[in-house]
Design a protein around this nucleic acid. Structure first.
Length: 321
DNA sequence: ACCTGTCAAGTCTGG
DNA sequence: CCAGACTTGACAGGT
């Protein structure tokens, strides 16, 4: 099985490279409204430039898997700048990023954050969620990246009745534009929807499923993944992509909250047993490292994996097992 | 230079 | 019904 490692948004190694620079609404309001868009455009430009630097750095490190931040364009979906054509204003910057990704065959994605709740009983929340997904779509299209660039999201809230909420997610799906539907993947979360429940929804909607093995440890009906892993991987069959998983280690053991939060690094033993199981069901796997120490955690994990005798390096950030 | 409170967005819990 | 927790990195204002 060929395994590639990736990380999320920020590099601790590459200095002054934040693609995340922002301004809060409270502070934007201190300037004349006619300058809102230019202020936001300047920040966005800086973010996109740093984004390209990060991708170049990734290539140098042979890291071919990466998640974009959702904060590339600050306040893009805020009502105050509704109608702002950020994709048009920043077309060149987006194109450069997309060209670089395509030329080097990198796998990139978005993870719209927890405000996106397609299963909310409140109509306006569903509407805002679709708006937020549209914002991500505009960026992918501006980059010229097709539906292999996935938007990974969670299933949403429980609203006191999980079964009902899964049903509502499936009902609301028809409201999601088709070009967004083709990009969405669902991930099991650490408090509400388990891997088995997420799989059920993914199968019903025909979307791939991202398995988070740390969330699974926090939130599951049956600890054993082996009975559903083959089905989880099967959701990727038509995507042209290897299955993707998330890995992280708990920050502490003193409380349920500490168990859920992410540690600075990933303990190699939180990944290895899973890989042994996974290789029975797939010959390629992409692993996102979700650790506070970002790319440094990726590198440490890679190094620790290389000390395991069954692991053969294929590059600085990929290996055969 | 460093420290602390605050931040657009949702949900859940507990008062 | 409403305030605060949850959780994240970074801004912004204070020292």
């Amino acid at each position: 099985m060929l395994v590639r490692l990736g990380y999320v948004a920020l590099s601790l190694e590459l200095k002054n490279s934040s693609p995340n620079k922002t301004i809060t609404w409270t502070n934007l309001q201190k300037i004349d409204p006619k300058f809102y868009v230019s202020r936001l455009t300047i920040l966005s430009k800086e973010n996109l430039r740093n984004q390209l630097r990060l991708l170049r750095y990734n290539l140098g490190e042979e890291i071919m898997l990466y998640r974009f931040t959702s904060k590339l364009i600050p306040l893009a979906t805020h009502d105050a700048v509704a109608g702002w054509d950020f994709a048009g204003d920043l077309a060149e910057d987006f194109e450069q990023i997309g060209e670089f990704v395509k030329k080097n065959r990198m796998r990139v994605g978005f993870h719209p954050d927890h405000f996106v709740n397609l299963n909310s009983p409140k109509d306006d929340i569903v509407e805002k969620s679709i708006q937020d997904l549209t914002y991500h779509l505009q960026q992918s299209q501006a980059m010229g990246l097709d539906e292999t660039m996935k938007f990974n999201i969670h299933m949403g809230g429980a609203y006191k009745d999980k079964k009902d909420s899964i049903k509502r997610l499936i009902d609301n799906w028809t409201r999601v534009p088709a070009d967004i539907q083709r990009r969405i993947t669902f991930e099991n979360d650490d408090k509400t929807f388990t891997a088995a429940e997420t799989l059920e929804a993914c199968q019903a909607l025909g979307t791939p499923m991202v398995l988070d093995i740390h969330h699974h440890r926090c939130n599951h009906e049956h600890h054993d993944l082996s009975s559903i892993l083959e089905d989880i991987f099967a959701t990727w069959k038509d995507s042209g992509l290897p299955p993707k998983i998330h890995v992280s280690s708990p920050k502490g053991t003193e409380s349920a909250a500490a168990m859920r939060s992410h540690a600075d690094f990933v303990d190699v033993h939180d990944l290895l047993p899973f890989l042994q199981l996974a290789k029975r069901h797939t010959d390629a796997l992409d692993v996102m490292v979700e650790a506070k120490n970002k790319d440094q955690a990726l590198k440490k994990l890679m190094k620790d994996l290389m000390n395991e005798n069954q692991v053969q390096p294929r590059s600085e950030a990929s290996f055969e097992l």
